[in-house]
Amino acid sequence: MPKLVKVYLQQIAIGFGLSAVFTAILLYMNVGNLGHLVFNSSDGLLGLFLIFFFNGLVFAGVQFAIRIMRMGYDDDDDDDDDRGTSIRSFDPVPVRVSAQDGRR
């Protein structure tokens, strides 16, 4: 399996794990009377699943984006050969430019 697919599946698992924790905290803290609504409604479990699923999609996307953006900072994957070399600089040299009078 390609490395990118493994990273993607790992970040999906982390995102949905975070979503499960987030949903459990929402129910435990009864934010917006959500716990009462979920457990006392006939469609409460569907709503609970949708909250979990859509938060999982968001958290997984954010996890994957953060992981991809941080890939350039890993020291073991450094393919950059220009480290340690100094930036070349030059000393500007003034050049004399003659100006002609534009009046006749």
Results as ranks from 00 to 15, higher is better:
residue 1 M to C: 10
residue 1 M to A: 13
residue 3 K to G: 05
residue 4 L to T: 08
residue 4 L to N: 04
residue 5 V to Y: 04
residue 6 K to I: 09
residue 9 L to E: 09
residue 11 Q to D: 13
residue 13 A to G: 14
residue 14 I to D: 08
residue 15 G to Q: 02
residue 15 G to E: 01
residue 15 G to H: 02
residue 15 G to T: 02
residue 16 F to Y: 12
residue 17 G to D: 07
residue 18 L to A: 10
residue 21 V to D: 05
residue 22 F to E: 02
residue 23 T to W: 06
residue 25 I to D: 10
residue 26 L to Q: 06
residue 29 M to Y: 08
residue 30 N to W: 07
residue 31 V to E: 05
residue 32 G to F: 11
residue 33 N to E: 09
residue 36 H to W: 10
residue 36 H to V: 04
residue 36 H to F: 11
residue 39 F to D: 03
residue 40 N to F: 06
residue 41 S to D: 01
residue 41 S to G: 00
residue 42 S to Y: 04
residue 42 S to R: 03
residue 43 D to P: 00
residue 48 L to F: 06
residue 48 L to Q: 01
residue 49 F to M: 04
residue 50 L to S: 02
residue 55 N to D: 00
residue 57 L to W: 02
residue 58 V to F: 12
residue 58 V to N: 05
residue 59 F to Q: 01
residue 62 V to K: 05
residue 62 V to S: 05
residue 63 Q to I: 00
residue 66 I to N: 14
residue 66 I to E: 09
residue 69 M to S: 14
residue 70 R to M: 10
residue 72 G to Y: 09
residue 72 G to E: 11
residue 74 D to F: 06
residue 74 D to Q: 12
residue 75 D to N: 15
residue 75 D to I: 15
residue 75 D to R: 15
residue 75 D to L: 15
residue 77 D to V: 01
residue 80 D to L: 02
residue 80 D to P: 00
residue 83 R to F: 02
residue 86 S to E: 12
residue 89 S to T: 10
residue 89 S to I: 10
residue 89 S to N: 04
residue 90 F to L: 06
residue 90 F to W: 08
residue 91 D to K: 15
residue 91 D to M: 12
residue 92 P to C: 05
residue 95 V to P: 03
residue 97 V to F: 11
residue 97 V to A: 14
residue 97 V to R: 13
residue 98 S to V: 13
residue 98 S to C: 07
residue 98 S to A: 12
residue 99 A to G: 07
residue 100 Q to W: 11
residue 100 Q to V: 13
residue 104 R to T: 09
